[in-house]
């Protein structure tokens, strides 16, 4: 079996598995997995920016929150149908992402991290303080995406959107754009000297990544029907980071799988209370230290190596 065919097969099995799961699981787990899809898009969008372009951001959760509020308020005040509300979420988060990308063009590494923390906290503080608009920390009621939709319907909807987002990201990253992104990550000055418009692509990367986060946040709001400023907090960002790192943030699919897997584990280990978050923090540190490509990255590398060795024996 060639590696390409093995990969197509694995992706097919994975998608089929997620399509069959609701037939085997109860309402509670279907709900948990649906939330997991929100984290999957969010973790993948973060991996797109950090893993491929090498631009660190701690504003991803805040961007999702912004998308959630944009969509909810658009539906509430402008009378948009929820689908157009999601469109508004993508536009607003993407536009702010573009603006932050433009403002931070000269910044790298820790400076970029600090600036994005500042933007994220300003967004969260504003959402808390402008209680006339957002209901503050009490949370904002959000219109449902599907009127009277069942859990299973939401599950398939979010599964479809997640798969669509991942395919879109995959196509983007396999195009010339993906090459530009990786050239910026490896050597920004070198890429610029070879004619890559570094300025433009750094901004575009921030905008695309934020737009996906905004879509995820909008979907989450219309599914859960309540959003609070706490979804923009740095603790929430820490969970997204842990998901992407544990899954493997140099690959959008692995990061997305990390998101679903961690969300399911967080629910399954609920009886451990706060200790499960301690365990995840510890696993994140260990993975960062010992397995920089994440658990799925390491697993795929092992399988690929074994296949190659077996192929050589024949």
């Amino acid at each position: 079996m060639t590696p390409q065919r093995a990969r197509t097969l694995a992706l097919g099995v994975l998608l089929a598995g997620f399509a069959v799961l609701p037939l085997l699981l109860g309402d509670y787990w279907i709900y948990t997995l649906t939330i997991g899809f929100y984290y999957a898009i969010l973790a993948a969008s973060w991996a797109l920016l950090v893993g491929y372009v090498g631009r660190i951001s701690f504003a991803q959760a805040a961007m999702a929150g912004l998308g959630g509020y944009a969509s909810a308020l658009g539906v509430q005040h402008l009378g948009l149908p929820p689908v157009l509300g999601l469109g508004l979420a993508v536009l607003v988060s993407g536009a702010l992402g573009l603006a932050i990308g433009w403002l931070t063009l000269r910044l790298h590494g820790a400076y970029l991290g600090l600036t994005t923390i500042a933007f994220a906290e300003i967004l969260r503080i504003t959402a808390t303080a402008e209680y006339g608009l957002t209901e503050g920390s009490r949370g904002l009621q959000v219109a449902p995406l599907l009127t009277g939709g069942s859990r299973t319907e939401y599950y398939y909807l979010l599964l479809g959107v997640t798969a669509g987002c991942l395919v879109l990201m995959g196509l983007l990253l396999r195009s010339r754009l993906g090459l530009f992104f990786q050239s910026i990550r490896e050597d920004e000055d070198g890429a610029a000297s070879l004619g890559v418009n570094v300025t433009l692509w750094k901004m575009v990367a921030f905008a695309i990544s934020s737009a996906f986060a905004g879509l995820a946040g909008g979907l989450y709001g219309h599914f859960v029907q309540l959003i609070t400023p706490s979804m923009m907090s740095l603790q929430e960002m820490g969970i997204v980071l842990a998901m992407a790192v544990i899954g493997g943030f140099h690959n959008v699919l692995f990061a997305a799988l990390g998101g679903v897997a961690l969300q399911v584990l967080l629910e399954a280990l609920r009886e451990l209370g706060e200790w499960r978050l301690v365990a995840f923090g510890l696993v994140t540190l260990l993975v960062l230290r010992l397995m920089p490509n994440g658990i799925f990255g390491a697993a795929v590398a092992t399988i690929a190596a074994r296949m190659r060795r077996n192929g050589g024996d024949e």
Partner: peptide, 10 residues
Amino acid sequence: IMITFALSIL
């Protein structure tokens, strides 16, 4: 950046 951020969450 990532290891110290992860440490803070832990």
